[in-house]
């Protein structure tokens, strides 16, 4: 039965079950507002959604359990591309971390500088050797900035540096 913990579907089912319970319980904090709706109210739809979500998760959990039971020992080889291993996930996670830092720096140091730094950081993480790539990074960022600023009239965050 330990195998079940290795099954992605088990975790999918569990997380969505928890989400369903969470959504269901939050609806009980909804109060009637100034404007009234005598029939279904603000809670009806989220409750229906959460109940169906719980049922679907239970169905998924059930089918995973039975599948594990029936398959006994011979573990299916499993698709490598979806494996949750540290080896596979360390680079995506480093980049996610960079993106989080990037988001907070964006309002401070503006789009151009922060994005160039992000670009360089990612090139470093993916071990890009070519020097050319490091030069392309700021050029690309500045072109994007200029196109959006002057052509599409979108002022990207400037931070305190002004660009």
């Amino acid at each position: 039965m330990k195998n079940i913990l290795k099954k992605t579907d088990f975790w999918v089912g569990l997380i969505s079950l928890l989400l369903g319970i969470f959504v269901f319980s939050v609806t009980f904090t909804f109060k009637q507002t100034l404007i009234t709706d005598n029939f279904l109210g603000a809670t009806f739809f989220p409750r229906i959604i959460s109940v169906v979500m719980m049922l679907l998760s239970i169905a998924l959990l059930w089918s995973t359990f039975t599948a594990v039971k029936n398959s006994s020992e011979d573990e299916p080889a499993g698709d490598n591309s979806t494996a949750f291993t540290i080896e596979r996930m360390k680079r995506p996670f480093s980049v996610i971390f960079c993106l989080a830092v990037y988001y907070f720096l964006l309002r401070l140091s503006g789009f151009c500088i922060t994005s160039t730094l992000l670009f360089w950081a990612m090139l470093f993480i993916i071990k890009a050797e070519k020097k050319k790539f490091y030069v392309i990074a700021p050029v690309f960022v500045v072109i994007v900035y200029a196109v959006f600023r002057y052509l599409f009239l979108v002022q990207l965050p400037t931070g305190i540096v002004g660009f």
């Binding site: 964006l106 994005s115 992000l118 990612m122 070519k130 790539f133 990074a137 960022v141 979108v154 965050p157």
Partner: peptide, 22 residues
């Protein structure tokens, strides 16, 4: 190695541009 960072930066720009909202 070049397109992945580019896509990420364009994603940020695109999501910002839609409402000018961080």
């Amino acid at each position: 190695k070049l397109i992945v960072p580019m896509i990420l930066i364009l994603s940020v720009v695109g999501s910002f541009a839609i409402n000018n909202n961080l």
